[in-house]
Simulated scan of single mutants.
Amino acid sequence: MNRNTFIKNGRFLAYTGGLAFTFAVAIGGYLLASLSIFQMIGPLACALLIAIIYRNYIGYPTQFKPGIKFASTFLLRGAIILYGLQLQIDQIFAVGIGIFFKDALVIILSITCMLLIGKWLKADLAILLLLGVGTGVCGAAAIGAVSPILKSKEEDIAISVGIIALIGSILSIAYPFLQSILDLSPEEYGIWSGMSLHEIAHVTLAAMPAGQEALSLAIIAKLGRVLWLIPLSCLFVLFMKKKEKQETSTVIKFPWFLVGFLLMSIFNSYILERYVYIPNAIVSTIPTLTTFLLTMAMVGLGLNVNIKTLCLKSARPLIAIIITSLLLSTITLVMI
């Protein structure tokens, strides 16, 4: 076997091994969720818990990192696109343009609170800004989008992503219990989840136990925040140009999976059943496939949570995001 073939085979095994690993843990999440004590939080949260425990007691399976990263990014986006087939476009219009501007307020509040609280705690400003963007927009994806613009250090990026994953995971598991305590309707709970939680995966994890309607509204509310990533990134580019007084070649990545989500919703609303026939056996499996892909993505998210490292190196930013996240949850609850 020549060197190139060996490298290709190594990459192939890293991807397939990572996908197989996330697949196996996802199955474990479903099995755990079948127990009465875990039924309320569902398979996504159970798979996330298994992944976090695995990472912190056994370690990260580094040999499978490419496949795990693929699961936590591309499978997640693919699942969101597929979810469009379960959503009528009329639902998006029914929520209205108002939610889009409320999402903008959420982002402003998140960044402002994070910086003010962090300054009071004397925490690192670079990490605080990344955490503010991640909390307000869409977690690790937003951090990844703005970090090249802000020229963030790799260590700061890693710490920020880890903190977002940890706090978002804790809140997304706690939210289903809060729904019954706060006596929220599925509609109110869905919008609240979408407006306040960090990652799309966290929103899905929290909203799914409340039913299809809550999940639909949660994703719509969350995607409004994701769409603000483009103008926010443009503002950061202008800020950096003014700060450094030079041109920047940073390319802003558009979240194309949002287009896929909207196209699938349009297809489901106006084309499917009217002009295209798809057997019910296939249509009925799409929600199950979507949920399972999300569960695999949740495994990748959980494996990024290194609790020991976060506690040792980022105590002050961690306190700042906890306070900010709790404030955000409270404010958005009043807003709905």
Score class of each variant (00 low, 15 high):
residue 245 K to P: 01
residue 98 G to R: 01
residue 25 V to F: 15
residue 252 I to L: 15
residue 11 R to C: 12
residue 208 M to H: 09
residue 271 I to R: 05
residue 136 G to H: 01
residue 36 S to V: 09
residue 322 I to M: 14
residue 53 I to F: 08
residue 60 Y to H: 14
residue 101 F to S: 03
residue 225 R to M: 00
residue 240 M to C: 13
residue 318 L to V: 07
residue 164 I to Y: 00
residue 151 K to P: 12
residue 12 F to T: 07
residue 126 A to H: 15
residue 111 I to S: 00
residue 119 K to T: 13
residue 131 L to D: 07
residue 118 G to T: 07
residue 253 K to L: 09
residue 23 F to G: 06
residue 135 T to S: 13
residue 102 K to V: 11
residue 324 T to D: 04
residue 73 T to G: 06
residue 105 L to P: 01
residue 279 P to W: 11
residue 273 E to T: 08
residue 100 F to S: 03
residue 30 Y to H: 15
residue 123 A to V: 06
residue 305 V to E: 04
residue 20 A to H: 13
residue 270 Y to S: 10
residue 288 T to Y: 10
residue 335 M to K: 05
residue 73 T to P: 01
residue 302 G to H: 03
residue 233 S to T: 01
residue 229 L to Y: 00
residue 255 P to N: 02
residue 243 K to V: 09
residue 115 L to C: 13
residue 64 F to A: 07
residue 257 F to Q: 00
residue 5 T to V: 08
residue 156 D to P: 08
residue 222 K to Y: 00
residue 91 Q to R: 14
residue 223 L to I: 02
residue 125 L to H: 15
residue 36 S to W: 06
residue 28 G to E: 00
residue 90 D to A: 11
residue 133 V to E: 08
residue 167 I to K: 05
residue 277 Y to D: 09
residue 136 G to T: 00
residue 296 M to Q: 09
residue 17 G to L: 05
residue 334 V to L: 14
residue 301 L to Y: 08
residue 203 V to W: 06
residue 293 L to S: 01
residue 230 I to E: 04
residue 310 L to N: 08
residue 226 V to M: 00
residue 61 P to T: 02
residue 281 A to N: 14
residue 119 K to C: 12
residue 21 F to S: 04
residue 10 G to T: 15
residue 159 I to A: 14
residue 294 L to W: 05
residue 61 P to R: 05
residue 195 M to A: 13
residue 215 L to K: 06
residue 151 K to Y: 07
residue 64 F to I: 14
residue 56 N to S: 01
residue 141 A to L: 07
residue 175 Y to V: 10
residue 62 T to K: 14
residue 272 L to H: 15
residue 24 A to S: 15
residue 246 Q to M: 15
residue 14 A to M: 10
residue 170 I to Q: 02
residue 186 P to W: 05
residue 207 A to T: 05
residue 186 P to N: 11
residue 58 I to K: 11
residue 154 E to P: 11
residue 136 G to N: 05
residue 242 K to V: 14
residue 117 I to E: 02
residue 317 P to C: 11
residue 200 I to F: 00
residue 39 Q to R: 07
residue 59 G to M: 08
residue 146 V to P: 07
residue 128 L to Q: 05
residue 31 L to C: 13
residue 100 F to P: 04
residue 157 I to K: 12
residue 270 Y to D: 08
residue 184 L to M: 13
residue 131 L to N: 07
residue 37 I to H: 10
residue 276 V to Y: 05
residue 328 L to W: 06
residue 277 Y to N: 14
residue 179 Q to T: 15
residue 122 K to V: 11
residue 20 A to S: 10
residue 57 Y to L: 14
residue 182 L to H: 03
residue 10 G to N: 08
residue 113 C to R: 03
residue 299 V to Y: 10
residue 25 V to L: 13
residue 193 S to K: 06
residue 113 C to K: 03
